[in-house]
Computed example of a mutant assay.
Amino acid sequence: MSEAEKRRIAGCAFDLGNTLINDTRLTTESVKDMSRWLFNQSLISAQDDFIKTYMKVNSETVKPFISHTFGEIEFFQKTLQQLSINKVSANEALLKYREILMEKIHPDQNVLEAFEFLKQKGIRIALLSNESVPRVEAYLDKTGLRHCFDTIVVSAGIGIEKPDLRFFQEALNRLAINSEEMVMFGDNAIADGACKNLGIFFVLVTGYRNQSWVWEQGESFQPDYVMEKVTRKDMEMFLKLE
C-alpha cells in the first residue's frame, strides 16, 4: 500500500502558474504579440529588442507579491526607459499586454474534470499561489473555475509567500483539516515542496515545469509522487480509485 493510499485525503491544494496553466508559454507568446502590436503602432522599431529587454527585466526583478506572468508596471517602466521609448506610457503598455494575455486564457476541460472528480470523492480543493491578487482574480474569472475551490490563498492577499510554512498552515486552517490529510500539487520543489516540513504529501507536477521560472530561495524537496498534468485520469491513478 502506497503512502497516498494510507492517508485519508481530505484536501488537495494546487499551485497556479506552471501547474494548472503553462505560464512560461503564456508569457512568452504574450510578450511576442505585445512587441508586434508596438511595432505595428510605430512605437518601436525592433521587436526582438523589446522582447529581450522585457524578458530580462522580468526575470531579474525578484520581489514578493508580484506577477511575472500578468506583468507589473515597473517591468514596462524599466523596459521602455532602457529602449528610450516615450510614445506610449508604461501604464498603457501594461494594460495592452494584459489584454493580449487574457485573450490566450481559456477554460481547461482537463483541470475542470479533475476537480469535479475530487469533489465527487468529497475532497476539498484549495488554490495556493505566490501571485498578485489581480492575476488570480482574472484567471478565475476567465476560466470559470472559481466555484471549484473551497478556499483560495494568494500570497499578496495574506502577506506571506511559499515556502513560508505559515502559508500552508493558512490553507489547513481554512480547510479545517490536518496536514496528514492534505496533498500539495505544484511544479516548484522549493516553494511547493516546503509543505513536506508540515507533513503534507507533495506531488510534483512536471508538464509545464520550468526551472528558470523559479524565484523562491530555500531547500529543494524530493516529491512523494510525480504527475505530468492535472487531469482526471492522473487523479484517478494517484488516488487509486478508478
Rank of each mutant, 00 (worst) to 15 (best):
S2F: 00
S2L: 01
E3V: 07
E5D: 12
K6L: 08
R7S: 00
R7Q: 00
G11F: 05
L20M: 06
T27P: 02
V31T: 07
D33G: 14
W37N: 02
L43W: 03
K52D: 15
Y54E: 15
V57P: 07
E60F: 00
F65V: 05
H68W: 09
Q77K: 13
T79W: 03
Q81P: 00
A90N: 10
A93E: 07
L94H: 07
L95K: 15
K96I: 07
Y97A: 09
E99T: 11
E99K: 14
E99Q: 14
I105N: 08
D108F: 06
N110C: 12
A114Q: 07
A114M: 03
E116S: 07
S129H: 02
S132E: 11
T143P: 02
R146G: 09
I152S: 04
I152P: 09
I152W: 04
I158S: 12
I160Y: 12
P163N: 06
D164Q: 12
F168M: 12
F168C: 12
L172D: 05
L172A: 06
I177S: 09
S179E: 10
E180K: 13
E180F: 02
M182F: 00
D187H: 00
A189C: 08
D192K: 10
G193A: 08
N197D: 14
L198M: 07
F201A: 03
V205R: 10
T206P: 01
Y208A: 05
V214M: 12
W215N: 12
E219C: 04
M235I: 05
L241T: 13
